[in-house]
Computed example of a mutant assay.
Amino acid sequence: MAEKLYASWASGYTAFPETAGLRTFRQGFGVTFTIPAGRIEFIHLPIPTPVIVGNDRATLDKVLVLFHARQTSEIVEVHVFDGPRRISRFSEMRLSGDHSQGVDTRNVFTVRQPDIAFGIGVTLRVNNTSASSDSELFISSFGGDFFHNL
């Protein structure tokens, strides 16, 4: 059997905030969330997941998030879930700047979790470091690299 790669991506406009009423602007090429001054917000990213292919459960190799943390926004944590179970957590980060146009060292998170059972969800913890002005987080796309032994 050989290890086969399966990449699954979704448009950024499918991301959604945890806080109802958070200002959200969706366009065909992504979504912009306005993070109020001094607030922390959670943004959720559902990744289409090939759980089983040819009787083999997927291994999630990595998740990728194309983002632009504008003004004083920073991604400070990334949580990866397989259904109800958190399988990975990346913390103590301060990711800012424009990483929305392609894959780079700041928007790839290596997970390497075998036996994916339900479906992958990614949660971003976003901090606005300004106490006086709003800032924005733009997401153009997100996805995951999966492996199957076929």
Score class of each variant (00 low, 15 high):
112 R>Q: 13
64 L>H: 03
92 E>S: 14
1 M>W: 07
128 N>T: 03
107 N>V: 05
88 S>L: 06
105 T>F: 12
82 D>M: 10
102 G>M: 05
61 D>T: 09
57 R>D: 03
142 F>E: 05
140 S>L: 01
40 I>G: 02
5 L>E: 15
41 E>P: 10
1 M>D: 14
11 S>V: 01
87 I>P: 03
75 I>R: 01
67 F>T: 00
56 D>Y: 06
82 D>Q: 11
77 E>W: 00
107 N>K: 03
35 I>Q: 08
45 L>W: 02
54 G>M: 08
50 P>Y: 07
114 P>G: 09
129 T>F: 05
78 V>D: 11
90 F>A: 02
124 L>N: 04
136 E>P: 05
38 G>D: 08
22 L>P: 11
62 K>S: 13
47 I>Q: 01
123 T>N: 00
88 S>G: 15
136 E>Y: 09
49 T>P: 13
66 L>H: 08
122 V>H: 03
104 D>S: 10
109 F>P: 07
111 V>D: 02
59 T>P: 05
41 E>M: 08
3 E>A: 11
65 V>N: 04
130 S>A: 14
128 N>K: 03
51 V>W: 00
34 T>L: 11
116 I>M: 00
139 I>V: 12
87 I>F: 08
81 F>M: 13
57 R>M: 13
67 F>E: 01
2 A>Q: 07
15 A>V: 01
134 D>A: 15
114 P>V: 02
35 I>E: 09
13 Y>I: 06
104 D>F: 07
17 P>L: 03
36 P>S: 14
129 T>S: 04
116 I>L: 02
87 I>C: 02
78 V>H: 08
70 R>I: 09
2 A>H: 04
145 D>L: 10
80 V>F: 06
77 E>C: 06
20 A>R: 09
63 V>E: 02
98 D>W: 10
131 A>E: 14
74 E>K: 12
